Amino acid sequence: MSELYIGLMSGTSLDGVDGVLADFANGQMRVVHHSNAPFPPDLRAELLALNRDGPNELHRSALAGNALVRSYSGVVQALLAHTLTPAHAVRAIGAHGQTVRHRPQEFDGTGYTLQLNQPALLAELCGIDVVADFRSRDVAAGGQGAPLVPPFHQAFFGRPDATQAVLNIGGISNITVLDPASDTPVLGFDCGPGNALMDGWCHTHTGQAFDDAGHWAASGKVDPGLLATLLSEPFFAKPPPKSTGRDLFNADWLAHHLRVFENLRAQDVQATLTELTAQSCAQALHTTAPACRTLVVCGGGALNTHLMQRLTHHLPGCQVLSSQARGLPPLQVEATAFAWLARQTCLRQTASLPKVTGAQGARILGAIYPA
């Protein structure tokens, strides 16, 4: 049986699709090739809009799912073409979809999580089995359905003789603590906003999609009052298991807190938002693993030099490094995780950790759409 899998990820940053062709032969995990594609502006705008209530949502969501999958298919074709890999040589594609609502355990006790996707269309376009809908089984079992990546972090980054943590900074930030000496060797949860608020503020005030290397934030000054107000959000004090998304940390949330800080310069708000991400992530590590001496950072936030410097400042005695130093570039980690998750599904092996999500037990995640 083939050990080639494709993983696709489009996260809450809404910057596009990352894909990897991964080889799991001989008990190893190796990225054969990485490809990415930005979202067309109209698709990005629609996906962002669908994170909020609006007219005709069912119709718009279905069409956005079709458009998203066509972007996915383009990345798959690029991976196959670059590596001269025939479609039939790939066991499956792991396609997470685009999260537009995430409300586990709310309303009726079960709640829901919703990812826009059209996995049947992706299987039709690519001629490869597709594994999708990774979160809902964990939610059905009473869990948060997130974060999904800690088991992969353990498999790829874990070391038998050292405690370390993996911090993914996408639109939302999540942390995994790997402590082989603990009764709970893997702990993971969402920390709060990652790039989502920074990117949105930057785009509104500069027209740029993101703050390149954090230069704009570095030109501003952190406002202590605004920072304290933002950090007063109850989510930060909530114990894990916990997860979040744009349902909470969005432009309306920021605008609400900014009402009494109208005279701040835009770059000072950007500096404060960067500090919010740095402090909330550092506090998550302090709370759960104060003795941790290595933090591996992945996701787009790992490319933000200013943010990495602020993390280092708040974590004295802890080495803060990019996942690149551990053999996997920051923008490839989550896509590789979904290739790994797809493999777990195909092998009928569990891929959830009850200690992470709060579910009643480990579950096989995902649904398979045959080609």
Rank of each mutant, 00 (worst) to 15 (best):
C126V: 03
L226G: 01
S352R: 00
T229L: 12
G7D: 07
H96G: 05
P104I: 05
G366H: 04
Q267G: 06
G158L: 01
L321S: 12
T163R: 15
A291Q: 14
C126I: 07
E57D: 08
E57H: 11
L248N: 09
M1S: 13
T184Q: 15
G366E: 07
N36T: 14
G245M: 03
P239N: 03
G207E: 08
Q164H: 13
P240N: 02
A351M: 05
L311D: 00
G299V: 10
D223A: 08
D138M: 04
P185C: 04
D138V: 07
Q309E: 14
L315S: 02
P330G: 01
S219H: 11
A255E: 13
H205W: 12
A67E: 09
G366V: 04
L197A: 04
R30L: 12
S280A: 08
A302F: 02
C191S: 10
H314W: 14
A282C: 10
Y112N: 11
H59N: 15
G142R: 07
V31I: 11
Q267V: 13
W201M: 06
P316W: 01
L254Y: 05
Q324D: 13
L48N: 14
T305W: 02
A64T: 01
A218C: 02
A291P: 00
V20K: 02
W201S: 04
A213L: 10
R259H: 14
V76Y: 06
P150H: 09
I364K: 05
P370F: 07
